[in-house]
């Protein structure tokens, strides 16, 4: 089990950031991803693996200000 934005989400082997974003249906383009507080660059989403117990934060940046 992992934490995604404070909600529990099932973990499985081979869970990359790309895969996790698909599972969560986080399809928006402007996002920041952090795993246990460490920033993950967009070009690393496919080969960055989430480990069981990780705390993942996904911030969806939206227009307005």
């Amino acid at each position: 089990m992992i934490n995604v934005n404070g909600e529990r989400h099932p973990w499985h082997a081979g869970l990359s950031i790309t895969r996790l974003l698909q599972e969560k249906n986080y399809v928006f383009p402007m996002i920041i991803v952090q795993i246990n507080g460490a920033h993950v660059h967009e070009e690393r989403y496919a080969d960055t693996m989430v480990r069981d117990g990780d705390d993942v934060a996904v911030i969806h940046l939206i227009t307005g200000g």
């Binding site: 660059h41 940046l61 939206i62 227009t63 200000g65």
Partner: peptide, 11 residues
Amino acid sequence: DRADQKLMLAD
């Protein structure tokens, strides 16, 4: 104002 700018700065 714009999301792409917010992302640029955060990155």
